[in-house]
Structure formats: structure tokens, C-alpha cells
């Protein structure tokens, strides 16, 4: 039993943290949010480092590492709110790697791994269709519970942008026949859900970090507001939610790599807890910042907005709790 990142995984984490701290600081994020544009130079650099293909097999042009390593990167990307389509690309690649035919894998994985093709991925269901997308996605993967999963090339797709509250990522709806994915669709859905959970844990961790910095600094009644238990206990709860979500996240990522039979339950647990955690932690961040937290000028709202979108993307907490009930046979399936 070793429930910790390996030295190599820690190194990946540190590299990502340092690069994104230098290249995706608050000013960059703000500029990207205002212009609603991806940072092409950063994306090129990240692609050259092999991030989008980190979990893709070497024979498909990836680095051949696992979902754990991808989650390490996504956590950092989420924490930095990096204006690059890492989740859409890596997510589309995950879905094709698990759910695609050999021909689809040949066709798309090397390009997605290299960042030369861009992707979009999401789910369609009772509540409509929501994909996280690169700005001009070449390939869109729709994981549809009712009609199976399909892959649609841009030329065949009717893509409707979904201008959301989160200006740091493109979200779209898509229609079009496309071609069906034929592989392990459950694993495709589950791994993408875990990827979204990973980014969400990063968002929550960052919200806590910003809040701590603020409440140590901000003084009222002649003391830092972080010395009031009403504030400090809220911060402790933010840590609790973040760490719980992180525990179940890495359990799910590990299961995908090492013990796939555990993945369905682990993935739904990870996605449900991450969705609940990231929403409550980012909401708490706004509250703990007081009035300033409600202003456009403070940066916490970008986190809150991403949290809301991520909570819905690939199924909300309610949907995953319903699935868990069925998987646990607490409730009849269906």
C-alpha cells in the first residue's frame, strides 16, 4: 500500500506548477478571460512537453504514462486556470483511447497527443449536451448515455457555441451523425469524468490557497480576520472537502491504470465528491473574501465559474450519486 505520488510523479507536478506559475499568473488569466482567447504560445509549449498525450500509449505517439500522471497535470492546470485546452484535448484522447476503434485511434491519438489536432469532449443526456472544447476543435467526442458514444469530425459537425459564465474555456453543443465509438464506452466515460474531477480538485485547492492568503492579510477589529473561528473553521472545512475529493480522485485514477474493475464505482465517487467539493469550496472562497470577493476585480470568481461548469460537465453530483446507488445495488438499476 503506497497512497502517494511517486518521485517521478512529484517531479511532473513540480514542473507543471513552476511552468504555470510563471506563464499563467493572474494577469495572464485575466487577459485571457476578458478576451475569451486561449494562449496559443503556452499551449504550444505545453504540447511540446507532451502534456496532452501523457496518458496516451507510446505506439500512438503519447508518453505511455497513466491517468494518475494526467490527473497530476490537470490538477495544476485547474489551479492555474491555464487558458489552454488541456482538458478537452486530453479528455477527447482518453475517450478515443478507451472507446475508439483501432482506426479511430490511429487517426486521432497521435495528433491529439502532439497538440496538432484539437479536441472536445463531453456528455449528452437527458439534460442536453455539454462539451468542453478547444477553440476550433478538430474532433468532438460525445459520450451519450442513451445513444452510445460517437466521434464527429469538425467538417461533419454542427457546433453551437455555448457562451457560459466561464470565460476561460470554450463550451459547445454539437449535433451530427459522426461515427460510433466501438470500444469500452464505460471506461471512456469514467476516465473523462475522473479527468474533470482532477481539474476540479486543482480549482478547489487554489481557492483555498487564495483564501488563506487573504484572511491572513486582511485585518478588521485590529486583527487578521483569519484569527476569527467563524473564518478559520470555514477554511478548515474547505481543506476537508478538498482533501476528501483528492483522496477519492487518486483512488479512481489509480484504479483506471491498475485495477479497472474498480473504476466504475471509483469514478462516480470521484466525480460526485469533486463536483460537490469544488462548488462549496469556491463559494466559501468568495464568502471569506467578503465584499471584495464579490467584485470583478478579485480573481476568485474565475474559480467559482469554472467550478460550476466542471460540476455539470460529464454529469453532475446527482447523476453520479444515482449511478452509485445502482452500482451498489442500494436502488434497482434504471
Amino acid at each position: 500500500m503506497d497512497f502517494d505520488l511517486s518521485p517521478e510523479q512529484r517531479e511532473i507536478q513540480a514542473t507543471a506548477r513552476d511552468l504555470l506559475a510563471a506563464r499563467s499568473g493572474p494577469a495572464v488569466v485575466r487577459e485571457a478571460a476578458q478576451s475569451r482567447r486561449e494562449d496559443a504560445a503556452l499551449w504550444k509549449e505545453i504540447s511540446e512537453l507532451g502534456w496532452p498525450g501523457i496518458a496516451i500509449a507510446e505506439r500512438h505517439g503519447g508518453q505511455g504514462l497513466g491517468l494518475v500522471e494526467l490527473c497530476v497535470l490537470l490538477e495544476q492546470a485547474g489551479a492555474a486556470l491555464a487558458p489552454v485546452p488541456l482538458l478537452p484535448n486530453a479528455g477527447a484522447a482518453l475517450a478515443i483511447a478507451h472507446g475508439g476503434t483501432p482506426r479511430q485511434q490511429e487517426r486521432w491519438l497521435p495528433a491529439l497527443a502532439a497538440g496538432s489536432a484539437s479536441g472536445a469532449v463531453g456528455a449528452a443526456g437527458r439534460d442536453g449536451c455539454l462539451l468542453a472544447a478547444a477553440a476550433e476543435a478538430d474532433v468532438l467526442v460525445v459520450l451519450d448515455d442513451r445513444h452510445g458514444a460517437r466521434l464527429i469530425e469538425r467538417s461533419q459537425a454542427q457546433v453551437t457555441p455555448l457562451p457560459s459564465i466561464d470565460p476561460l474555456r470554450t463550451y459547445v453543443e454539437v449535433e451530427g451523425e459522426g461515427e460510433p465509438l466501438g470500444g469500452d464506452l464505460a471506461a471512456a466515460r469514467d476516465t473523462v469524468a475522473v479527468a474533470v474531477a482532477a481539474e476540479s480538485v486543482g480549482v478547489a485547492a487554489r481557492a483555498l490557497e487564495m483564501t488563506l492568503a487573504y484572511v491572513k492579510e486582511r485585518r478588521q477589529f485590529d486583527v487578521p480576520v483569519g484569527s476569527f473561528q467563524a473564518v478559520s473553521h470555514r477554511c478548515a472545512e474547505m481543506l476537508l472537502h478538498t482533501e476528501q475529493a483528492r483522496s477519492v480522485l487518486y483512488h479512481a485514477a489509480w484504479a483506471s491504470d491498475a485495477e479497472p474493475a474498480r473504476l466504475p464505482q471509483a469514478a462516480s465517487l470521484a466525480k460526485a465528491l469533486a463536483a460537490e467539493a469544488v462548488v462549496s469550496v469556491t463559494a466559501s472562497a468568495i464568502q471569506a473574501h467578503g465584499g471584495i470577493g464579490f467584485t470583478w476585480e478579485a480573481d476568485v470568481h474565475w474559480l467559482y465559474k469554472r467550478a460550476q461548469m466542471n460540476a455539470v460537465l460529464m454529469g453532475g453530483a446527482g447523476e453520479h450519486r444515482r449511478r452509485l446507488a445502482a452500482l451498489l445495488a442500494i436502488a434497482p438499476a434504471g
Partner: peptide, 18 residues
């Protein structure tokens, strides 16, 4: 309540609670 104080002070580095 004490556990939250411990988390706040020792893990999160917040000032001693009041």
C-alpha cells in the same frame, strides 16, 4: 471545534484562533 482549530493553525497556518 478543537480539531478545526488545530487544522486552521497547524495545517493552514492561520493565526491563533480567538
Amino acid at each position: 471545534e478543537i480539531l478545526k482549530n488545530i487544522v486552521a493553525e497547524r495545517v493552514l497556518g492561520l493565526p491563533k484562533a480567538r
